[in-house]
Nucleic acid binder design. Sequence first.
DNA 1: TGGGTTCTCACGGCCACAGCCCGGA
DNA 2: TGTCCGGGCTGTGGCCGTGAGAACC
Length: 407
Amino acid sequence: MGAQCDFCGDQRSMVYCRSDAASLCLSCDRNVHSANALSRRHTRTLLCDRCTSQPAMVRCLVENVSLCQNCDWNGHSAGSEAAGHKRQTINCYSGCPSSAELSRLWSFISDIPNVAPEPNCEQGISMMSISDSGVSNQDNAAGDNSLLDIASATLTNDLDTCDRVQSLEGSSSGAGVNLLPTASDQIARPVDSTTPKVPYTPEKDMFCKDTIYEDFCVDDVDLAFENYEELFGTSHIQTEQLFDDAGIDSYFEMKEAPAGNADEQKLVQPANSNAVSADSGMSNPVAKGDSSVCIPVRQARSSLSLSFSGLTGESSAGDHQDCVVSSVLLMGEPPWHPPGPEGSYPGGSRDSALTRYKEKKKRRKFDKKIRYASRKARADVRKRVKGRFVKAGEAYDYDPLCETRSY
DNA sequence: TGGGTTCTCACGGCCACAGCCCGGA
DNA sequence: TGTCCGGGCTGTGGCCGTGAGAACC
């Protein structure tokens, strides 16, 4: 480390905020991200110990350093001495966690500075959400129905996932490149503050212990799907196209197909693209509690890579590293898929599901990519008259902040 | 079956202004 | 060659007007 905090310029920076593209010390992190509800939603993670400029994705347990994707790959490439180093993924968080909470989140960090609770951040840890992608010290409270838990569970039910984990443990490039855990399915997955905290059992993720899918809650998934949209910018356009290509109806038709084995389901899937096959992964019965049927992770992964191909040059490595999509695509069920035995639609619920989907799609702006978050933030709070911006200090009929009128 | 009316939806323009971009000093 | 300055341009969200298409009579 050694980089100074971008905010105060005084303290050593420790965390990286992708939304702000800033390295911050913990104190400034709390100050900056307790300012308002929007800033509290920024997901942060540790700073890479090696380059001190990128968000860390994994923790090398041997070298005891946090590494970003590039440094990880560079340092643990096949053939290198460190290729076999055991690594753990590093959690993201949002909200305003205290130093104690961060200590629990990052147990491997011994020198977390003490940070006083932020009075503006009334909920503390309850406000905080942890993006669990591999490591946490929290016990896995059974029944905590978190999306990420489900995502992890989905992975852990797949033998391929074991391969994946092993590949993470071993070489990060070269011969193992095909099995290389993409940023999308390997690393920290930010979660909106509204998403429940994620309990975690390290053994579960790292060693593919059995996991069950009880308490799968569609509401959680809905939340996550919103997050996915919110966080993903461009790449979700692919997702829309994905649905558009196959058509949402085709998806529901697929879901209504006789609940046979996976092969039968494959037969009724639209087979026009790999992207659609990602859908097939999403419709996999894994989340129904059938641990005997697993998502073909390699298939899903290849689909993921297609999805990510939509990232433009403007997308930073961090965009890849956010990879909420992994949570969504790998979690076994589409976000609007209702819970219930066999995942079937009771009479009439198909229409409601379709309606919900359409409403969500309507709310979304798939074709819009925010290029300048600062401008968006300003526009979000700018006063208007009949939708038009007004000069500062002039009469307005709409204030996004308080929805009051000046006259 | 064709014409008229109504409704829904999509799209673009408008507004202010911070910050980006780029040319010139 | 690098830095600074200033002017022009860009992009942001909500509302409204307009046109296209669907639905109905």
